[in-house]
Computed example of a mutant assay.
Amino acid sequence: MLFIPFPFVVAILLLVLFVTMVRREDEASPNLPFLALILISAFQSLLSGLRWGYGVHGVMYVAPVVAATVPPLAYGGVSRLVRRSRRSWLSRIGLHALPAAVIIVLVAAWRDAIDVALVLIFVGYAAAILFLMRPGADALRLAPFEGAVSAYRAIIFTAVGLLLSAAVDTFVFLDLAWADGERAVTVITFGNLAALLILAVAAAAASRSRTPVETIDIAPKPETAEDKQTIAMVQALMETKHIYRDANLNLERLARKVGIPARQISGAINRATANNVSQYVNEYRIVEACRLLAESEKSVTEIMFDVGFQTKSNFNREFRRVTDMTPLEWRERKAPQS
């Protein structure tokens, strides 16, 4: 009977995920590093299957180089959501190609150092990603507000995936050195593949990124004069221009419309409301959704799109966060009785 290694199954799943992401990608400028990360993860899983499933030793010269491209791609995908311009990552493409170049040199000249070098690369890029995300969800200046929190969580999982891969490589290195690799195959097969799945799924999730019952009070309580002025300007745009209806609204675009630096807007809203900017904007969306649910005959899906949401999962999650109800429960309680 034909033996199909488990890594091949993972590779097929990752290819399906890649095709799905490409087909769903409707932006003018897709997050290419994240898409490449999914494809590279599938290729790396294929190499793992060839090496440990069929004993193809030649892949040992290719697999470390491929592995060294994963952390820079993860960082590049995160950078595309954080930086104002793509040039911020692309301008340093030579620097981000350095890890793969170092591994190529080590493959040719010093193979014993490859595992240590890979661990340092993965840990270093994980730390860099966590450093980029230190402001929380508001760090994602180019991610639509609707999915900013979900994207933030996915990016944290991306960093965790890099750290998990580094931990697996460390364990395998020690196992080969001290126990002749008794557990190496099992750990590589399941540990590294788990890390690849976490990275790929998190990248896919991040790249998509995009009183309580009777009244919903979202009035800010600024603590400084500058905060008060900043939030007043943001609030004016929300209430008069209804810019929250823009499904692609993000912190960078909001800053341009208001004419205030993104960091100033983020800081003012954080201090005044204890929420991040995406939560603040989504609350305006939920307020209008509540009104439409109570006063119109539109379907929940129509209302979801009207107020600026694009997915039911995000809409339902934010609606419940603000009102402690589902949209249908709100409609049943608030709709006028005939």
Rank of each mutant, 00 (worst) to 15 (best):
L35H: 13
Y61G: 14
E329L: 04
R92L: 01
L73R: 11
G94A: 13
T20K: 10
I156R: 15
L35C: 09
K334L: 01
G308F: 00
L106A: 07
V116I: 15
P5S: 02
V281N: 04
M325C: 05
L132A: 09
L81D: 13
G259D: 06
S207N: 03
V9W: 05
V19K: 04
G77L: 02
A143E: 02
A247H: 09
A117R: 04
A137R: 04
V201D: 08
Q229E: 08
A236S: 14
A274H: 15
N248W: 04
L15K: 03
R320L: 10
V185E: 15
W89K: 02
Q44D: 14
A194S: 15
E283R: 14
S296G: 06
L162H: 02
L35A: 09
I156S: 14
E214K: 10
P7I: 00
A184W: 09
A236F: 12
R263N: 11
R321S: 15
V149D: 07
L15M: 07
V300P: 05
H96Y: 05
I156N: 15
V9E: 01
R208F: 09
S207R: 03
S299V: 02
F305H: 12
L132W: 14
I216T: 11
L106N: 11
T186D: 14
A262K: 05
V258I: 00
N275V: 03
E182P: 07
A97Y: 15
P144Y: 01
F173P: 12
F122W: 07
V277I: 07
V107T: 14
T215G: 09
P261M: 06
T20S: 10
L176P: 08
G161M: 02
M325H: 10
V62T: 04
D112S: 15
V281H: 00
V149N: 10
P261Y: 04
T215V: 07
S79V: 11
D115G: 14
T186V: 14
L199Y: 09
R210K: 06
V300A: 06
F319N: 08
W330P: 08
L35M: 12
Y244N: 03
L37K: 10
L120Q: 00
E182A: 11
R253M: 10
A255E: 11
E27C: 09
G77I: 01
L106C: 11
R80P: 06
F190A: 13
R92P: 01
T20R: 12
V16Q: 08
V19G: 02
A117F: 03
L163E: 06
A206P: 09
T170K: 12
T323H: 02
A97N: 15
R245I: 00
L90C: 00
A205R: 10
V187R: 03
A206H: 08
G161C: 07
S266N: 13
R253A: 09
S266W: 11
W89S: 05
K241H: 08
G191L: 01
L118A: 00
R24M: 08
A42Q: 01
V281A: 05
E297V: 12
T326V: 03
A36W: 11
D138R: 08
